[in-house]
Amino acid sequence: MGKDYKKYVDEISPKPKYLKNYTLAFIVGGIICVIGQIINDLYLKVGNLDKIPASTATSITLIFIGALLTGLGVYDLIGKRAGAGSIIPITGFANSIVSPAMEYKREGFVLGVGANLFKIAGPVLVYGIGSSIICGFFYYIFTLIK
Rank of each mutant, 00 (worst) to 15 (best):
L69F: 15
I27S: 12
L19R: 01
I141L: 08
M102L: 15
A101G: 01
G71R: 13
G130Q: 13
G92L: 03
E11L: 06
V113N: 01
I88T: 01
I39S: 11
T143D: 11
I120A: 03
L49E: 10
V124W: 00
Y22T: 10
L69R: 13
F142P: 02
L144D: 05
L117P: 01
E107F: 14
A54S: 15
Y104T: 00
K7Q: 13
S13Q: 09
I120H: 04
F142S: 09
I78L: 14
F118L: 12
K119H: 11
G30N: 01
G92Q: 02
I35L: 09
K119E: 09
P14E: 12
G66L: 05
T70P: 04
K3Q: 14
I78D: 11
F137P: 01
D10V: 06
F118H: 04
I31N: 03
T56H: 08
M102G: 06
I133H: 13
I35E: 04
K3L: 12
Y43K: 01
T58K: 12
T61H: 10
N95I: 10
G108F: 03
L68P: 12
K51S: 14
L44G: 05
I39N: 04
V126R: 04
C135H: 13
G122D: 02
D41S: 14
L44H: 08
L72W: 02
T70Q: 05
R106K: 09
E107H: 07
T58Y: 10
L111E: 08
I39A: 09
K17A: 15
G71L: 08
L62H: 05
I133C: 13
T91F: 09
G128Y: 01
V28P: 11
Y104F: 03
Y127M: 12
F142W: 01
L42C: 02
A101I: 02
T70G: 01
A94G: 04
G83S: 01
D41G: 03
I141Q: 06
I88M: 02
G36Y: 02
V110S: 13
Y22Q: 12
A101Q: 04
T23G: 10
L125R: 12
G85T: 00
P123V: 06
